[in-house]
């Protein structure tokens, strides 16, 4: 029996921004069905690394394979398809504020259907609308479908962003500090939702966080970055608290 290939296989990633090396020879391998926490102080390169993986920022060098495909060689429809299979949840949620919650979730299908069908829930076919309602129900917000996205609380907004990512039918979910702008209770809710997606649905999740407790509670593995380099890469259970503390020293 052969093990399934890693969903993320990045090697030697380098990125300079504003004359500073933000990501310096970073490698990241993520096995299918696992939950990985990226931790590190501000400016360590966590968010940049996530953006490099889906090429929202182009790397200066290194290789990236997502879902077994060479991300750097992909362009046009192939690149869009790899992005479609990789959900991305942003720290600021990045919803379309003036659109309804349901439209924001329907947007998750833009990568796999015609743009005229998924730009608004009003134009979407019934199957897409039903699927979007299912995604909203999975994050407990089906009752908010018609509300404008800019009228939601921070926690609700983040859960809509997760529902939009689920609408992509992704195998991999990247989340950039998903709990950073939320109060502690809402942050725990969101992190529990991510863990549930791993345990219940078999999704692979990579999230960045400043909350060491979140990393310890919800991740199987912790990768610590410092000054753009990998300083820690260990199973959560084997991760020494002193080593983690040293990351922020």
């Amino acid at each position: 029996m052969t093990a399934s290939p890693p969903l993320v296989d990045a090697v030697g990633l380098v990125k300079d921004l504003g004359g500073r090396r933000v990501v310096d020879d970073v490698g990241l391998v993520v096995a299918q069905g696992s939950c990985v926490a990226l931790i590190g102080p501000n400016g360590a390169g966590k968010s940049t690394l996530l953006r490099l993986l889906v090429r929202l920022i182009e790397p200066d060098s290194g290789s990236i394979h997502l879902h077994g495909h060479d991300m750097r060689a992909a362009s046009g429809a192939a690149l869009r398809d790899l992005r479609r299979r990789t959900g991305f949840v942003f720290q600021q949620h990045n919803l379309v504020g003036r659109a309804s919650v349901l439209t924001n979730v329907v947007h998750g299908a833009l990568g796999r259907t015609g743009w005229w069908r998924a730009c608004s829930h009003r134009l979407a076919p019934a199957a897409l609308r039903d699927e979007a309602m299912d995604c909203l129900a999975r994050v407990g917000l089906a009752a908010f479908a018609e509300r404008r996205a800019d009228r939601l609380s921070g926690g609700q907004s983040q859960r809509v962003a997760i529902a939009r990512a689920l609408m992509q039918r992704p195998g991999l979910l990247l989340a950039d500090e998903p709990a950073a702008s939320l109060d502690p209770a809402a942050g725990e809710d969101v992190m529990r939702a991510f863990r549930g997606l791993v345990d219940r649905d078999g999704l692979t999740v990579v999230f960045t966080s400043h909350h060491i407790a979140h990393a310890r509670t919800y991740a199987d593995r912790i990768v610590g970055l410092r000054a753009g380099r990998v300083a820690i890469d260990a199973a959560t259970a084997a991760c020494d608290p002193a080593t983690v503390d040293a990351l922020y020293a």
Partner: peptide, 9 residues
């Protein structure tokens, strides 16, 4: 950026 990230044209 979010829509680009999910594969939108």
């Amino acid at each position: 950026e979010a829509l680009r990230a999910l594969g939108a044209t």
